[in-house]
Design a protein around this nucleic acid. Sequence first.
DNA 1: GCAAGGACTGAATGATGGTTCACTTCTTCC
DNA 2: GGAAGAAGTGAACCATCATTCAGTCCTTGC
Lengths: 199, 199
Amino acid sequence: MAYRSTERVKARLSASRERIIAAALEIMARHGYAGCSVAAVAERAGVATGSVYRHFPTKAHLFAEVFRTASQREVDAVARAAARQATVAAQVAAVVETFAGRALQSPRLAYALLAEPVDPAVDAERLTFRRAYADLIAGYVAAGVASGELPPQDPELTSTAVVGALAEAMVGPLAAGVAGPGTIPGLIRFIHRALGVSP
Amino acid sequence: MAYRSTERVKARLSASRERIIAAALEIMARHGYAGCSVAAVAERAGVATGSVYRHFPTKAHLFAEVFRTASQREVDAVARAAARQATVAAQVAAVVETFAGRALQSPRLAYALLAEPVDPAVDAERLTFRRAYADLIAGYVAAGVASGELPPQDPELTSTAVVGALAEAMVGPLAAGVAGPGTIPGLIRFIHRALGVSP
DNA sequence: GCAAGGACTGAATGATGGTTCACTTCTTCC
DNA sequence: GGAAGAAGTGAACCATCATTCAGTCCTTGC
Protein backbone atom coordinates (compact mmCIF):
# COMPACT_ATOMS: atom_id res chain seq x y z
CA MET A 1 0.00 0.00 0.00
CA ALA A 2 2.14 2.76 -1.29
CA TYR A 3 -0.52 5.23 -2.32
CA ARG A 4 -3.71 6.50 -0.83
CA SER A 5 -5.18 9.75 -2.08
CA THR A 6 -4.61 12.58 0.29
CA GLU A 7 -6.57 15.74 1.04
CA ARG A 8 -4.64 17.78 -1.45
CA VAL A 9 -5.42 15.34 -4.26
CA LYS A 10 -9.04 15.13 -3.24
CA ALA A 11 -9.28 18.88 -3.37
CA ARG A 12 -7.73 18.95 -6.82
CA LEU A 13 -10.13 16.26 -8.03
CA SER A 14 -13.07 18.12 -6.70
CA ALA A 15 -11.83 21.35 -8.23
CA SER A 16 -11.45 19.59 -11.54
CA ARG A 17 -14.95 18.26 -11.29
CA GLU A 18 -16.30 21.71 -10.53
CA ARG A 19 -14.37 23.14 -13.46
CA ILE A 20 -15.98 20.60 -15.79
CA ILE A 21 -19.45 21.53 -14.57
CA ALA A 22 -18.67 25.21 -14.88
CA ALA A 23 -17.34 24.71 -18.40
CA ALA A 24 -20.46 22.84 -19.42
CA LEU A 25 -22.58 25.60 -17.98
CA GLU A 26 -20.64 28.27 -19.83
CA ILE A 27 -20.95 26.48 -23.14
CA MET A 28 -24.63 25.94 -22.53
CA ALA A 29 -25.13 29.62 -21.75
CA ARG A 30 -23.34 30.52 -24.96
CA HIS A 31 -24.27 27.84 -27.48
CA GLY A 32 -27.03 25.87 -25.83
CA TYR A 33 -27.07 22.18 -25.12
CA ALA A 34 -26.51 21.49 -28.79
CA GLY A 35 -23.00 22.92 -28.56
CA CYS A 36 -22.08 20.78 -25.57
CA SER A 37 -20.06 17.88 -26.92
CA VAL A 38 -17.97 16.16 -24.30
CA ALA A 39 -14.86 17.16 -26.21
CA ALA A 40 -15.84 20.83 -26.15
CA VAL A 41 -16.59 20.75 -22.44
CA ALA A 42 -13.30 19.02 -21.70
CA GLU A 43 -11.33 21.52 -23.74
CA ARG A 44 -12.93 24.48 -22.03
CA ALA A 45 -12.31 22.90 -18.64
CA GLY A 46 -8.69 22.34 -19.58
CA VAL A 47 -8.76 18.56 -19.26
CA ALA A 48 -8.65 15.69 -21.71
CA THR A 49 -11.85 14.20 -23.05
CA GLY A 50 -11.27 10.97 -21.21
CA SER A 51 -10.84 12.78 -17.91
CA VAL A 52 -14.47 13.81 -17.95
CA TYR A 53 -15.25 10.14 -17.52
CA ARG A 54 -13.20 9.97 -14.32
CA HIS A 55 -15.84 12.22 -12.78
CA PHE A 56 -19.05 11.25 -14.54
CA PRO A 57 -20.01 7.81 -15.84
CA THR A 58 -21.83 9.21 -18.89
CA LYS A 59 -22.55 12.48 -20.57
CA ALA A 60 -26.12 12.29 -19.34
CA HIS A 61 -24.91 12.06 -15.73
CA LEU A 62 -22.74 15.11 -16.23
CA PHE A 63 -25.55 17.15 -17.65
CA ALA A 64 -28.04 15.95 -15.11
CA GLU A 65 -25.73 17.50 -12.55
CA VAL A 66 -25.22 20.63 -14.63
CA PHE A 67 -28.97 21.10 -14.84
CA ARG A 68 -29.35 20.45 -11.14
CA THR A 69 -26.71 23.02 -10.28
CA ALA A 70 -28.06 25.69 -12.58
CA SER A 71 -31.63 25.05 -11.52
CA GLN A 72 -30.77 25.26 -7.86
CA ARG A 73 -29.12 28.59 -8.42
CA GLU A 74 -32.21 29.93 -10.17
CA VAL A 75 -34.65 28.57 -7.66
CA ASP A 76 -32.58 29.91 -4.79
CA ALA A 77 -32.54 33.39 -6.27
CA VAL A 78 -36.27 33.32 -6.78
CA ALA A 79 -36.91 31.96 -3.30
CA ARG A 80 -34.68 34.63 -1.76
CA ALA A 81 -36.56 37.40 -3.54
CA ALA A 82 -39.94 36.00 -2.59
CA ALA A 83 -38.99 35.48 1.03
CA ARG A 84 -38.60 39.22 1.50
CA GLN A 85 -42.31 39.74 0.81
CA ALA A 86 -45.14 39.48 3.29
CA THR A 87 -48.28 38.78 1.24
CA VAL A 88 -48.93 36.03 -1.26
CA ALA A 89 -49.58 38.69 -3.88
CA ALA A 90 -46.18 40.26 -3.31
CA GLN A 91 -44.45 36.90 -3.07
CA VAL A 92 -45.81 35.76 -6.37
CA ALA A 93 -44.99 39.06 -8.00
CA ALA A 94 -41.42 38.69 -6.76
CA VAL A 95 -41.27 35.16 -8.17
CA VAL A 96 -42.37 36.32 -11.60
CA GLU A 97 -40.11 39.35 -11.67
CA THR A 98 -37.06 37.46 -10.52
CA PHE A 99 -37.66 34.48 -12.73
CA ALA A 100 -38.32 36.55 -15.82
CA GLY A 101 -35.63 39.09 -15.08
CA ARG A 102 -32.95 36.44 -14.68
CA ALA A 103 -34.15 34.56 -17.73
CA LEU A 104 -33.94 37.67 -19.89
CA GLN A 105 -30.49 38.32 -18.47
CA SER A 106 -29.22 34.97 -19.86
CA PRO A 107 -31.74 34.01 -22.48
CA ARG A 108 -29.71 31.24 -24.05
CA LEU A 109 -29.21 29.51 -20.73
CA ALA A 110 -32.83 30.02 -19.76
CA TYR A 111 -33.94 28.49 -23.01
CA ALA A 112 -31.65 25.51 -22.48
CA LEU A 113 -32.97 25.00 -18.96
CA LEU A 114 -36.62 25.47 -19.89
CA ALA A 115 -37.26 24.21 -23.35
CA GLU A 116 -34.33 23.21 -25.53
CA PRO A 117 -34.42 19.66 -26.85
CA VAL A 118 -32.07 17.54 -24.76
CA ASP A 119 -31.18 13.96 -24.07
CA PRO A 120 -34.17 12.20 -22.48
CA ALA A 121 -32.16 11.30 -19.41
CA VAL A 122 -31.35 14.97 -18.90
CA ASP A 123 -34.92 15.94 -19.59
CA ALA A 124 -35.94 14.18 -16.41
CA GLU A 125 -33.82 16.66 -14.49
CA ARG A 126 -35.74 19.49 -16.09
CA LEU A 127 -38.88 18.14 -14.51
CA THR A 128 -37.35 18.45 -11.07
CA PHE A 129 -36.40 22.03 -11.94
CA ARG A 130 -40.00 22.87 -12.68
CA ARG A 131 -41.09 20.90 -9.65
CA ALA A 132 -38.84 22.97 -7.44
CA TYR A 133 -40.51 26.16 -8.62
CA ALA A 134 -43.90 24.58 -8.25
CA ASP A 135 -43.13 23.48 -4.70
CA LEU A 136 -41.95 26.96 -3.81
CA ILE A 137 -45.13 28.49 -5.13
CA ALA A 138 -47.30 25.78 -3.65
CA GLY A 139 -46.01 26.75 -0.22
CA TYR A 140 -47.08 30.35 -0.66
CA VAL A 141 -50.44 29.34 -2.10
CA ALA A 142 -51.14 26.95 0.75
CA ALA A 143 -50.28 29.64 3.27
CA GLY A 144 -52.50 32.10 1.42
CA VAL A 145 -55.41 29.69 1.43
CA ALA A 146 -54.91 28.99 5.12
CA SER A 147 -54.81 32.69 6.00
CA GLY A 148 -57.83 33.46 3.86
CA GLU A 149 -55.88 35.72 1.51
CA LEU A 150 -56.72 33.26 -1.29
CA PRO A 151 -59.90 31.30 -2.00
CA PRO A 152 -59.85 27.51 -1.46
CA GLN A 153 -57.90 25.61 -4.14
CA ASP A 154 -55.46 22.76 -4.62
CA PRO A 155 -52.04 24.36 -4.14
CA GLU A 156 -50.39 21.56 -6.11
CA LEU A 157 -52.48 22.07 -9.18
CA THR A 158 -52.40 25.83 -8.94
CA SER A 159 -48.65 26.01 -8.59
CA THR A 160 -48.05 23.57 -11.45
CA ALA A 161 -50.28 25.60 -13.71
CA VAL A 162 -48.58 28.81 -12.66
CA VAL A 163 -45.16 27.41 -13.52
CA GLY A 164 -46.48 26.33 -16.90
CA ALA A 165 -47.95 29.73 -17.60
CA LEU A 166 -44.74 31.43 -16.54
CA ALA A 167 -42.51 29.18 -18.64
CA GLU A 168 -44.69 29.32 -21.73
CA ALA A 169 -45.02 33.06 -21.58
CA MET A 170 -41.25 33.39 -21.43
CA VAL A 171 -40.40 31.15 -24.38
CA GLY A 172 -41.40 33.71 -26.98
CA PRO A 173 -39.51 36.61 -25.36
CA LEU A 174 -36.51 34.34 -24.82
CA ALA A 175 -36.39 33.54 -28.51
CA ALA A 176 -36.67 37.25 -29.30
CA GLY A 177 -34.07 38.09 -26.65
CA VAL A 178 -36.28 40.68 -25.02
CA ALA A 179 -39.77 40.92 -23.56
CA GLY A 180 -42.25 43.64 -24.44
CA PRO A 181 -42.59 46.15 -21.61
CA GLY A 182 -46.06 44.90 -20.70
CA THR A 183 -45.17 41.24 -20.46
CA ILE A 184 -44.04 41.00 -16.88
CA PRO A 185 -46.75 43.17 -15.28
CA GLY A 186 -49.31 41.45 -17.50
CA LEU A 187 -48.13 38.07 -16.30
CA ILE A 188 -48.30 39.17 -12.70
CA ARG A 189 -51.88 40.34 -13.16
CA PHE A 190 -52.75 37.06 -14.89
CA ILE A 191 -51.32 35.02 -12.06
CA HIS A 192 -52.87 37.17 -9.37
CA ARG A 193 -56.27 36.65 -10.95
CA ALA A 194 -55.58 32.93 -11.30
CA LEU A 195 -54.75 32.61 -7.62
CA GLY A 196 -57.77 34.66 -6.67
CA VAL A 197 -55.85 37.54 -5.10
CA SER A 198 -58.53 40.09 -4.25
CA PRO A 199 -58.01 43.25 -6.32
CA MET B 1 -41.77 10.91 -74.13
CA ALA B 2 -42.93 7.42 -73.39
CA TYR B 3 -43.94 7.91 -69.80
CA ARG B 4 -45.79 10.54 -67.89
CA SER B 5 -47.25 9.68 -64.52
CA THR B 6 -50.96 9.19 -64.72
CA GLU B 7 -53.73 9.70 -62.19
CA ARG B 8 -53.57 6.13 -61.03
CA VAL B 9 -49.88 6.40 -60.25
CA LYS B 10 -50.33 9.76 -58.58
CA ALA B 11 -53.01 8.25 -56.39
CA ARG B 12 -50.75 5.37 -55.46
CA LEU B 13 -47.92 7.76 -54.65
CA SER B 14 -50.14 9.86 -52.51
CA ALA B 15 -51.50 6.78 -50.76
CA SER B 16 -47.98 5.64 -50.10
CA ARG B 17 -47.11 9.03 -48.68
CA GLU B 18 -50.15 8.93 -46.41
CA ARG B 19 -49.26 5.44 -45.30
CA ILE B 20 -45.80 6.62 -44.30
CA ILE B 21 -47.23 9.46 -42.25
CA ALA B 22 -49.75 7.15 -40.63
CA ALA B 23 -47.03 4.62 -39.83
CA ALA B 24 -44.91 7.32 -38.22
CA LEU B 25 -47.88 8.45 -36.19
CA GLU B 26 -48.63 4.94 -35.02
CA ILE B 27 -45.08 4.32 -33.94
CA MET B 28 -45.02 7.64 -32.18
CA ALA B 29 -48.27 6.84 -30.37
CA ARG B 30 -46.80 3.53 -29.27
CA HIS B 31 -43.11 4.14 -28.65
CA GLY B 32 -42.71 7.90 -28.83
CA TYR B 33 -40.47 9.85 -31.10
CA ALA B 34 -37.49 7.92 -29.82
CA GLY B 35 -38.76 4.74 -31.49
CA CYS B 36 -39.21 6.43 -34.84
CA SER B 37 -36.20 5.47 -36.91
CA VAL B 38 -36.73 5.90 -40.63
CA ALA B 39 -36.22 2.16 -41.08
CA ALA B 40 -38.95 1.36 -38.55
CA VAL B 41 -41.39 3.77 -40.15
CA ALA B 42 -40.67 2.37 -43.60
CA GLU B 43 -41.15 -1.19 -42.43
CA ARG B 44 -44.47 -0.41 -40.78
CA ALA B 45 -45.61 1.44 -43.91
CA GLY B 46 -44.61 -1.53 -46.02
CA VAL B 47 -42.04 0.28 -48.14
CA ALA B 48 -38.27 0.23 -48.35
CA THR B 49 -36.23 2.66 -46.30
CA GLY B 50 -35.12 4.51 -49.40
CA SER B 51 -38.67 5.03 -50.55
CA VAL B 52 -39.35 7.33 -47.64
CA TYR B 53 -36.96 9.71 -49.31
CA ARG B 54 -39.04 9.79 -52.47
CA HIS B 55 -41.69 11.57 -50.43
CA PHE B 56 -39.72 13.58 -47.89
CA PRO B 57 -36.31 15.17 -48.35
CA THR B 58 -35.24 14.47 -44.77
CA LYS B 59 -36.49 12.79 -41.65
CA ALA B 60 -37.10 16.19 -40.11
CA HIS B 61 -39.39 17.13 -42.99
CA LEU B 62 -41.33 13.92 -42.54
CA PHE B 63 -41.82 14.49 -38.86
CA ALA B 64 -42.61 18.13 -39.29
CA GLU B 65 -45.51 16.98 -41.39
CA VAL B 66 -46.44 14.24 -38.93
CA PHE B 67 -46.54 16.80 -36.15
CA ARG B 68 -48.52 19.19 -38.28
CA THR B 69 -51.08 16.51 -39.15
CA ALA B 70 -51.49 15.28 -35.61
CA SER B 71 -51.61 18.78 -34.20
CA GLN B 72 -54.20 19.90 -36.68
CA ARG B 73 -56.37 16.97 -35.73
CA GLU B 74 -56.12 17.89 -32.05
CA VAL B 75 -56.70 21.57 -32.56
CA ASP B 76 -59.67 20.88 -34.82
CA ALA B 77 -61.29 18.65 -32.24
CA VAL B 78 -60.81 21.25 -29.56
CA ALA B 79 -62.06 24.05 -31.78
CA ARG B 80 -65.13 22.05 -32.73
CA ALA B 81 -65.99 21.40 -29.09
CA ALA B 82 -65.50 25.02 -28.14
CA ALA B 83 -67.51 26.34 -31.05
CA ARG B 84 -70.64 24.72 -29.66
CA GLN B 85 -70.49 26.96 -26.58
CA ALA B 86 -71.85 30.46 -26.25
CA THR B 87 -69.93 32.10 -23.40
CA VAL B 88 -66.21 32.48 -22.97
CA ALA B 89 -66.46 30.54 -19.74
CA ALA B 90 -68.09 27.59 -21.47
CA GLN B 91 -65.76 27.81 -24.46
CA VAL B 92 -62.68 27.66 -22.29
CA ALA B 93 -64.12 24.83 -20.26
CA ALA B 94 -64.71 22.91 -23.47
CA VAL B 95 -61.14 23.57 -24.57
CA VAL B 96 -59.73 22.20 -21.34
CA GLU B 97 -62.01 19.18 -21.25
CA THR B 98 -61.42 18.23 -24.85
CA PHE B 99 -57.70 18.84 -24.74
CA ALA B 100 -57.20 16.93 -21.53
CA GLY B 101 -59.64 14.18 -22.40
CA ARG B 102 -57.98 13.46 -25.71
CA ALA B 103 -54.52 13.65 -24.21
CA LEU B 104 -55.42 11.10 -21.56
CA GLN B 105 -56.90 8.90 -24.25
CA SER B 106 -53.50 8.66 -26.02
CA PRO B 107 -50.99 9.66 -23.41
CA ARG B 108 -47.91 8.51 -25.29
CA LEU B 109 -48.84 10.52 -28.35
CA ALA B 110 -49.82 13.52 -26.29
CA TYR B 111 -46.48 13.41 -24.54
CA ALA B 112 -44.67 13.20 -27.88
CA LEU B 113 -46.61 16.16 -29.22
CA LEU B 114 -46.25 18.27 -26.10
CA ALA B 115 -43.01 17.58 -24.40
CA GLU B 116 -40.87 14.70 -25.63
CA PRO B 117 -37.34 15.65 -26.68
CA VAL B 118 -37.22 15.78 -30.47
CA ASP B 119 -35.04 16.96 -33.28
CA PRO B 120 -34.73 20.77 -33.09
CA ALA B 121 -36.16 21.14 -36.59
CA VAL B 122 -39.24 19.23 -35.51
CA ASP B 123 -39.41 21.17 -32.28
CA ALA B 124 -40.21 24.26 -34.31
CA GLU B 125 -43.38 22.54 -35.46
CA ARG B 126 -44.36 22.03 -31.86
CA LEU B 127 -44.30 25.76 -31.36
CA THR B 128 -46.86 26.20 -34.11
CA PHE B 129 -48.97 23.54 -32.40
CA ARG B 130 -49.02 25.52 -29.20
CA ARG B 131 -49.50 28.71 -31.14
CA ALA B 132 -52.58 27.24 -32.80
CA TYR B 133 -54.13 26.56 -29.41
CA ALA B 134 -53.11 29.98 -28.19
CA ASP B 135 -54.66 31.66 -31.24
CA LEU B 136 -57.86 29.75 -30.72
CA ILE B 137 -58.07 30.83 -27.11
CA ALA B 138 -56.95 34.37 -27.91
CA GLY B 139 -59.98 34.72 -30.18
CA TYR B 140 -62.36 33.78 -27.40
CA VAL B 141 -60.60 36.02 -24.90
CA ALA B 142 -60.65 38.99 -27.26
CA ALA B 143 -64.35 38.47 -27.87
CA GLY B 144 -64.94 38.18 -24.13
CA VAL B 145 -63.07 41.39 -23.44
CA ALA B 146 -64.98 43.17 -26.19
CA SER B 147 -68.33 42.00 -24.87
CA GLY B 148 -67.45 42.86 -21.30
CA GLU B 149 -67.63 39.26 -20.13
CA LEU B 150 -63.93 39.52 -19.26
CA PRO B 151 -61.93 42.38 -17.76
CA PRO B 152 -59.44 44.21 -20.02
CA GLN B 153 -56.29 42.18 -20.76
CA ASP B 154 -53.87 41.31 -23.52
CA PRO B 155 -55.45 38.30 -25.24
CA GLU B 156 -52.08 37.21 -26.64
CA LEU B 157 -50.39 37.06 -23.27
CA THR B 158 -53.40 35.52 -21.57
CA SER B 159 -53.83 32.79 -24.14
CA THR B 160 -50.13 31.93 -24.17
CA ALA B 161 -50.13 31.63 -20.42
CA VAL B 162 -53.28 29.50 -20.50
CA VAL B 163 -51.71 27.09 -22.97
CA GLY B 164 -48.65 26.84 -20.77
CA ALA B 165 -50.74 26.15 -17.69
CA LEU B 166 -52.75 23.55 -19.52
CA ALA B 167 -49.74 21.77 -20.96
CA GLU B 168 -47.77 21.80 -17.73
CA ALA B 169 -50.68 20.54 -15.70
CA MET B 170 -51.06 17.62 -18.11
CA VAL B 171 -47.44 16.47 -18.14
CA GLY B 172 -47.64 14.85 -14.73
CA PRO B 173 -50.90 12.99 -15.41
CA LEU B 174 -49.60 11.96 -18.82
CA ALA B 175 -46.55 10.38 -17.26
CA ALA B 176 -48.80 8.62 -14.75
CA GLY B 177 -51.25 7.64 -17.48
CA VAL B 178 -54.22 9.02 -15.62
CA ALA B 179 -55.32 12.27 -14.03
CA GLY B 180 -56.75 12.58 -10.56
CA PRO B 181 -60.50 13.18 -10.65
CA GLY B 182 -60.15 16.76 -9.53
CA THR B 183 -57.55 17.79 -12.08
CA ILE B 184 -59.77 18.85 -14.95
CA PRO B 185 -62.39 20.76 -12.97
CA GLY B 186 -59.61 22.30 -10.91
CA LEU B 187 -57.87 23.45 -14.06
CA ILE B 188 -61.07 24.93 -15.40
CA ARG B 189 -61.57 26.89 -12.20
CA PHE B 190 -57.95 28.07 -12.32
CA ILE B 191 -58.30 29.28 -15.88
CA HIS B 192 -61.66 30.89 -15.27
CA ARG B 193 -60.16 32.87 -12.43
CA ALA B 194 -57.14 33.74 -14.56
CA LEU B 195 -59.34 35.11 -17.33
CA GLY B 196 -61.44 37.00 -14.85
CA VAL B 197 -64.68 35.14 -15.54
CA SER B 198 -67.09 36.55 -12.97
CA PRO B 199 -68.16 33.79 -10.55
C1' DG C 1 -43.66 -6.05 -77.72
C1' DC C 2 -40.65 -2.61 -76.50
C1' DA C 3 -38.17 1.58 -75.50
C1' DA C 4 -38.12 5.39 -72.21
C1' DG C 5 -38.26 6.82 -67.98
C1' DG C 6 -40.11 6.88 -63.48
C1' DA C 7 -40.72 4.17 -58.98
C1' DC C 8 -38.75 1.12 -55.72
C1' DT C 9 -35.32 -1.41 -53.30
C1' DG C 10 -32.11 -2.26 -49.38
C1' DA C 11 -27.39 -2.86 -48.64
C1' DA C 12 -23.56 0.23 -48.36
C1' DT C 13 -21.98 4.76 -46.98
C1' DG C 14 -20.81 8.41 -43.99
C1' DA C 15 -21.14 11.62 -40.25
C1' DT C 16 -21.56 12.26 -35.64
C1' DG C 17 -20.00 12.08 -31.17
C1' DG C 18 -20.06 9.29 -26.92
C1' DT C 19 -17.02 6.05 -24.88
C1' DT C 20 -12.88 3.25 -24.16
C1' DC C 21 -8.15 1.95 -23.15
C1' DA C 22 -3.17 1.37 -23.59
C1' DC C 23 -0.10 4.44 -22.24
C1' DT C 24 2.12 8.41 -19.71
C1' DT C 25 2.51 11.28 -15.76
C1' DC C 26 2.01 12.31 -11.09
C1' DT C 27 1.61 11.08 -5.79
C1' DT C 28 2.40 8.68 -1.98
C1' DC C 29 4.98 6.20 1.27
C1' DC C 30 8.82 3.31 2.69
C1' DG D 1 15.31 6.58 -4.90
C1' DG D 2 11.90 3.60 -6.23
C1' DA D 3 7.80 0.66 -6.23
C1' DA D 4 2.81 0.77 -6.22
C1' DG D 5 -0.91 2.57 -7.77
C1' DA D 6 -3.92 6.41 -8.89
C1' DA D 7 -4.88 10.30 -12.13
C1' DG D 8 -4.74 11.99 -16.67
C1' DT D 9 -4.39 11.64 -21.70
C1' DG D 10 -6.33 11.72 -26.48
C1' DA D 11 -6.40 9.02 -30.49
C1' DA D 12 -8.93 5.10 -31.86
C1' DC D 13 -13.11 2.69 -31.50
C1' DC D 14 -17.76 1.80 -32.18
C1' DA D 15 -22.80 2.10 -32.36
C1' DT D 16 -26.33 4.46 -34.32
C1' DC D 17 -28.93 5.95 -37.87
C1' DA D 18 -29.94 9.22 -41.55
C1' DT D 19 -29.00 9.27 -46.22
C1' DT D 20 -27.53 7.66 -50.83
C1' DC D 21 -27.28 5.07 -55.13
C1' DA D 22 -26.56 1.37 -58.47
C1' DG D 23 -29.43 -1.87 -59.85
C1' DT D 24 -34.22 -3.79 -60.59
C1' DC D 25 -39.03 -3.60 -61.38
C1' DC D 26 -43.24 -1.14 -63.25
C1' DT D 27 -45.92 1.91 -66.00
C1' DT D 28 -46.78 4.34 -70.08
C1' DG D 29 -47.42 5.35 -74.90
C1' DC D 30 -46.44 3.81 -79.36
